[in-house]
Measured scan of single mutants.
Amino acid sequence: GTEIELESKNGQREHYTATSEDEARKIIEKAVRRGIKRIELRGASEQLIRDMQEIAKQIGLQYRTDGSL
């Protein structure tokens, strides 16, 4: 699965493990709508990382991946 670590603007951290790319995408989209400061992805697919970079650029988000592409 993909591990997703979120940090909201007030510094609250949340951790999710998505079993599918679809689920990961839903978690990320929800977080973005809620207003999130930072997202870290571990074990994400190349496609998901590309999507994440696109989203991050659009809304000026900090993100990090573990680089295991």
Rank of each mutant, 00 (worst) to 15 (best):
G1E: 11
G1C: 14
G1W: 14
G1Y: 13
G1M: 13
T2C: 12
T2P: 08
E3S: 09
E3W: 13
I4C: 03
I4Y: 01
I4N: 01
I4W: 01
I4L: 04
E5K: 10
E5M: 14
E5R: 13
L6H: 01
L6I: 15
L6E: 01
L6K: 01
L6T: 07
L6M: 09
E7T: 13
E7K: 05
E7N: 03
S8G: 10
S8E: 10
K9C: 15
K9L: 14
N10S: 12
N10I: 05
N10W: 11
N10V: 05
N10A: 10
G11H: 03
G11T: 01
Q12E: 13
Q12W: 11
Q12A: 07
Q12F: 13
Q12S: 09
R13Q: 07
R13M: 07
R13C: 10
R13L: 11
R13S: 06
R13V: 11
R13H: 10
E14M: 12
E14R: 09
E14P: 00
E14H: 12
E14S: 09
E14I: 13
E14V: 09
H15V: 13
H15F: 13
H15C: 13
Y16M: 03
T17Y: 12
T17D: 05
A18K: 03
A18W: 08
A18M: 06
A18V: 12
T19S: 08
T19N: 11
T19C: 13
T19H: 14
T19I: 11
S20A: 04
S20L: 02
S20V: 02
S20F: 03
S20G: 05
S20Y: 03
E21F: 06
E21D: 14
E21V: 07
E21N: 06
E21K: 02
D22I: 10
D22R: 08
D22P: 06
D22M: 08
D22S: 09
D22C: 11
D22W: 12
D22H: 08
E23K: 03
E23W: 04
E23Q: 08
E23A: 07
A24Q: 00
A24N: 00
A24T: 03
A24P: 00
A24F: 06
R25P: 00
R25T: 02
R25F: 07
R25I: 08
K26T: 10
K26I: 13
I27D: 00
I28C: 03
I28W: 02
I28E: 00
E29C: 15
E29Y: 14
E29R: 10
E29M: 14
K30W: 14
K30V: 11
K30E: 13
K30M: 15
K30S: 14
A31E: 02
A31G: 04
A31D: 00
V32W: 06
V32K: 02
V32Y: 07
V32P: 00
R33N: 09
R33S: 09
R33G: 08
R33Y: 10
R34A: 13
R34H: 10
R34M: 14
R34V: 10
G35I: 02
G35D: 05
G35K: 04
G35T: 02
I36P: 02
I36S: 03
I36E: 01
K37A: 10
K37G: 04
K37C: 14
K37N: 08
K37V: 12
R38H: 06
R38W: 15
R38S: 08
R38E: 03
I39S: 00
I39N: 00
I39V: 06
E40D: 06
E40V: 15
E40G: 10
E40K: 14
E40Y: 15
L41A: 01
R42G: 03
R42I: 06
R42N: 05
R42A: 05
G43A: 04
G43T: 04
G43N: 13
A44M: 03
A44I: 02
A44C: 07
A44E: 01
A44L: 02
S45Y: 02
S45T: 07
S45R: 02
S45V: 02
S45L: 02
E46L: 12
Q47M: 08
Q47E: 09
Q47K: 09
L48I: 04
L48Q: 01
L48S: 01
L48C: 03
I49R: 07
I49K: 07
I49N: 06
I49E: 05
I49T: 05
I49S: 07
R50N: 07
R50I: 07
R50W: 08
R50Q: 07
D51K: 09
D51F: 15
M52V: 15
M52A: 06
M52Y: 03
M52D: 00
Q53I: 15
Q53S: 08
Q53R: 09
Q53N: 07
Q53E: 13
Q53A: 11
E54A: 11
E54H: 05
E54L: 09
E54I: 11
I55F: 14
I55A: 03
I55W: 14
I55S: 01
A56V: 07
A56H: 03
A56W: 06
A56N: 02
A56L: 08
A56K: 02
K57G: 06
K57L: 13
K57V: 06
K57A: 11
K57M: 10
Q58C: 13
Q58K: 13
Q58N: 07
I59F: 15
I59M: 15
I59R: 13
G60Q: 06
G60M: 06
G60W: 11
G60P: 04
L61V: 06
L61Y: 10
L61H: 04
L61P: 05
Q62N: 06
Q62W: 09
Y63F: 15
Y63R: 06
Y63I: 15
Y63S: 10
Y63V: 15
R64Y: 15
R64D: 15
T65C: 15
T65D: 15
T65F: 06
D66Y: 03
D66P: 04
D66F: 03
D66K: 03
G67D: 09
G67H: 06
S68D: 08
S68E: 10
L69Q: 06
L69A: 07
L69S: 07
L69F: 15
